[in-house]
Amino acid sequence: MPETVRRVDAAERRARLARRHHLAPGERAATVTDAARGLVCLHATDPATVYLSARARVDGMTVGDLDRALYEERSLVRHLAMRRTQFVFPRETLPAAQAGASGRVADRERRSLVRDVEKAGLFGDGARWLDEAGAAVLGALADGAGPVSYRELKAAIPVLAGAIVHGEGKSWGGKMSIGPRVLTVLSAEGLVVRAGNDGSWWTSRNRWATTESWLGSRIASVPEGDGTARLVAEWLRAFGPGTEADLKWWLGSTLTAVRQALSVLDVARVDLDGGVGYLLADDLAPVGAVEPWAALLPGLDPTTMGWRERDWYLGSYQQPLFDSVGNAGPTAWWDGRIVGGWWQDEAGRVVVHLLEDVGVEAERALAAEADALTEWLGGVRVMLRFPSPLSKQFA
């Protein structure tokens, strides 16, 4: 294990965040694809998040810019990966994501679906049914007709029909269709991709295509360890310094996998105010401070969600800004720290709620950000899939 080479304090970590994540003025990304590269990938489980995250990092960004990258240029691809979360990856990162994260998710999703359909009595041999259903989906998508909606697939493939009762007797219980879960498995396996959206940018009505037809080839196969190491290296470049706990959480993996990746990478240990963190060995030069900056980031933004140990930028605001299972709501940032949250009123106007006294300069900067975001949204009210307690209280 490398020796600890120097201390990286919270101020430098915030400066690195501002520069690497394209949040400080003068550090903006040129394109939405560059913005995604700067963060390894963009969160996309909540469909609005990826647009609002890109908008926060690319001056003048429009919805059409991201749509072109996703559906015309195809330099960005929606893909299920770490922690069973949907992300938008730069196309060149897909092999590492598939090997280092998605394959693990696919195995878990496949076992879960087989178990659930057998338990519900839908199929005696769940594994055989899933193989047949997957083959039928791939066959239907291979006819060259272009991206297909789930509704169209379900109408053409009877084996996708059926539902599982969950949470029986509970207020949140109900029936869950099994067909979408087949697509979840196939997407995590890298065989199909989300290749269009029939809804508005803030909704999710995916159209599906085979990966090969959409991208021109299958996702290149690499060993799991190599994929994990590349993801760790990219995370360290974007988010470093960070701890083993940060990496384990972000990857949704194990400490063993994290330590194996660190052992094959050229990394250096640094002192994080008494804790042990890691940087790539060629990234040890101190990073200077940036001018104070303001940002309004959406729920599940990759910066807010990038670390497991968040005290250096979140402080004591976990409870009002994260839900009970760890999903972040919309956040207000000043000079590298989260200082509050935001939501929209009934007219669609963005409203900032501060959790501390940040001073007149910060208040004015955040108010200007709220006005700019209100104008960009143009009256669209984004409904949060994972509202924070603060959002629930005031929205």
Score class of each variant (00 low, 15 high):
Met1Thr: 05
Met1Ser: 14
Glu3Ile: 09
Arg13Phe: 07
Arg14Leu: 10
Ala15Asp: 03
Arg20Leu: 08
His21Ile: 03
His22Glu: 10
Leu23Ser: 04
Leu23Trp: 06
Ala24Met: 08
Pro25Thr: 06
Arg28Leu: 12
Val40Thr: 10
Val40Ala: 02
Leu42Tyr: 03
His43Lys: 02
Thr45Ile: 12
Tyr51Gly: 00
Tyr51Thr: 02
Ser53Gly: 10
Arg57Gly: 07
Gly60Leu: 05
Ala69Arg: 00
Ala69Phe: 08
Leu70Lys: 01
Glu73Asp: 15
Ser75Ile: 03
Leu76Arg: 01
Val77Met: 05
Arg84His: 11
Phe87Cys: 02
Phe89Ala: 11
Glu92Tyr: 07
Leu94Ser: 04
Ala96Ile: 10
Ala101Asp: 04
Arg104Glu: 02
Arg108His: 08
Glu109Pro: 03
Leu113Gln: 00
Arg115His: 12
Gly124Ala: 15
Ala133Arg: 02
Leu138Asn: 05
Ala140Ile: 12
Ala142Gly: 15
Ala145Arg: 05
Pro147Arg: 01
Arg151Asp: 12
Pro158Leu: 13
Gly162Ser: 04
Ile164Phe: 00
Ile164Asn: 00
Gly167Leu: 11
Gly174Met: 13
Lys175Gly: 06
Gly179Val: 08
Arg181Ile: 10
Ser187Val: 08
Gly190Thr: 06
Leu191Glu: 10
Val193Asp: 01
Arg194Phe: 04
Ser200Thr: 15
Ser204Asp: 15
Arg205Tyr: 14
Arg207Met: 11
Ala209Asn: 05
Thr210Arg: 11
Thr211Ile: 13
Glu212Ser: 15
Ser217Ile: 08
Val222Pro: 03
Ala229Met: 09
Ala229Arg: 06
Arg230Gly: 02
Leu231Gly: 01
Leu231Cys: 01
Leu236Arg: 00
Gly240Gln: 01
Thr243Tyr: 12
Glu244Asp: 13
Ala245Thr: 14
Leu247Asp: 06
Trp249His: 08
Thr256Glu: 11
Gln260Ser: 15
Val264Pro: 00
Gly275Gln: 14
Asp282Arg: 04
Trp293Arg: 00
Leu297Gln: 04
Gly299His: 02
Pro302Lys: 00
Asp311Thr: 12
Gly315Tyr: 14
Ser316Arg: 05
Ser316Asp: 15
Gln319Met: 12
Pro320Gln: 05
Leu321Arg: 02
Ser324Leu: 09
Asn327Thr: 03
Asn327Phe: 15
Pro330Gln: 09
Trp333Tyr: 10
Gly336Lys: 05
Arg337Ile: 06
Arg337Cys: 06
Ile338Gly: 00
Ile338Leu: 05
Gly340Thr: 00
Trp343Arg: 06
Arg349Gly: 01
Val350Ala: 11
His353Met: 06
Leu366Met: 10
Glu369Pro: 03
Asp371Ile: 08
Ala372Tyr: 05
Leu373Asn: 03
Thr374Ser: 12
Val380Ala: 15
Phe386Gln: 10
Phe386Ser: 02
Ser391Gln: 04
Lys392Ser: 09
Phe394Val: 15
Ala395Glu: 11
